[in-house]
Amino acid sequence: MLKQIWRGRSGYLFILPKFALFIVFVFIPILWSFLVSFQEYRVFDTVWVGLDNFRDAFSDDIFWMAVQNTLRYAVVVMPSTVIIALILASLINPLRRSAQTFFRAAFYLPTVASTVVLSMVWRWIFQTRFGLANYFLASLGLEPINWLHSSEWAMRSVITMAVLTPPGMGVILYLAAMSSIPDSLYEAATIDGANRLVQWWRITLPLLKPTTLYLMIVSTIGSFQVFDQVMLMTQGGPGYATTTIVHRIYQTAFRDFQFGYAGAMSMLLFFAIIVLALIQSRLVTSDVEYKG
């Protein structure tokens, strides 16, 4: 064992700088949050409360509504982010260089503005009286919808925003990965008489697996932690129709000063995402390596 460690020393050295930063600025804070989830955190007289915070979470009706809302969001947004990115990248990749450059920019640039600004724009789009969405419906002769202010539509509106905002990161990542696939593989396939679609299915898709896994996990994390859009577009309402888990965590921590309870909900969310990520990494085994 020691021998193996010694032989792998350069491996450790390469990760050391990152790992050191990680321990100080990520791991220690997480450890604090973990410990706090077993406490009632107070400035002067913190008390240990065992599993009380977790018990509170299970009996908190708002938390359960938040879980349901988050699931509703994630079930649509998580796969659609990955699939849309894959479709767009696959459509862009065979194009001429200049066209590639143009479309890559067109799909990435909309994401450069901060979520704050984008949410603001979408709030205008969904505005009941003058918004673009209802203007569009009216021009089709349809009844206006109270997008952000009815329980039925509020979450759908938030989801619509997420789906219609192009997954810029996914597109450029897939394109980067596609650009690294050696041409020789396609040339061989062409000689074998496989058409484009077959090549895409047999060569491109399997070789994109590591990227797909990455995007699946990252978009799972992103959609389970949805917060900014909700905070800015609906503030969790109407009622609790768009209250998400992280929205609840944020309110609990900074408004109600219940850091222990917020920590406990975070740990539950953490375990839920871990389980999903593990399932995903089983489904998409990513051990592929190009043979040029």
Binding site: Q127, T128, R129, F130, N146, H149, Q235, G237, P238
Partner: peptide
């Protein structure tokens, strides 16, 4: 209006005071 009682603070203010939107 139908949006009365929703969470749209800015919209309500515009509806009262914003030039061109005062309805």
């Amino acid at each position: 209006p139908i949006e009365m009682g929703s969470a749209d603070v800015g919209g309500a203010f515009q509806a009262l005071a914003r030039e061109g939107q005062r309805h």
